[in-house]
Amino acid sequence: MKQSIWMKSFYYIVAFLFASISLYPIILMIVSSFKPTIEIFTNPLSLPKSFHFQTYEKLLDQVPFMTYFYNSVFVSVVSVLLILITTSLAAFYIARYTYWWNNILFFVFLMGMMIPIKLGIVPLFILMKGLGLTNSLWSLILMYTAQGIPLSILILTGFFRTMPMELEEAARMDGASDLRILWNVVLPLMRPALGTVMIINFIQSWNDFFFPLIFITNEMKKTIPVGMLSLFGEYSADWGALFAGLTLSSLPMLILFFIASKQFMEGLTAGAVK
């Protein structure tokens, strides 16, 4: 494509301008976390005079961060797996079979995207209590799975519909069962869409704070966002501690992203629009 040099440099300027707007607050957060509060107030923009790790030591001393971290990992990974299993089965059914109720089923699932679920918090709490799941990570796993189902079904169904039937037909001729067809023939072709579902839901369940707030009172069962939230209240005037707390809460996700950014990006773009 031939473009004037002006056009090209205009593109670059705009692209880099907005990239820096996206990045700067996060960099500021990380940099500020290494400054004592007084320095943040007097010199908010400069690099720290010396790296000040005491705030981190103080925070890590006070909260069981590794426990929060483990809880977050466990909850997010298990709910993502459950979402992948349940929704690929359901979406396969909705997309590949033409029973008259399939559209209704699809619509019922989609409505979940619009439900203000906070409304149901009291019945939910009673339900979790009945299942003996309050103060258990499984209450969160089940909630995030349920919450992730609508959007995941939307994405997967869309993707299933774009895929040619021939391979499946052939496998069916050979007498393969539906489950085998799904597992051996269809899912391998679905990787991009599964990646999308995986990443969207992973970010979602990793960052939620509302459900643990209500379901979890045991300190050792808290996830990162809700565990760190109490710190934000306690250190409301200590900006150094606040920035360090914010950085600490975000760090695991940022690191994972830097390790696997290509997969994140590809995953998100590949399955999103079909």
Binding site: P64, M66, T67, F69, Y70, N71, V73, F74, M220
Partner: peptide, 8 residues
């Protein structure tokens, strides 16, 4: 994470 937390 499991290794770290199981200690605790």
């Amino acid at each position: 994470a499991t290794a770290c937390s199981s200690e605790k």
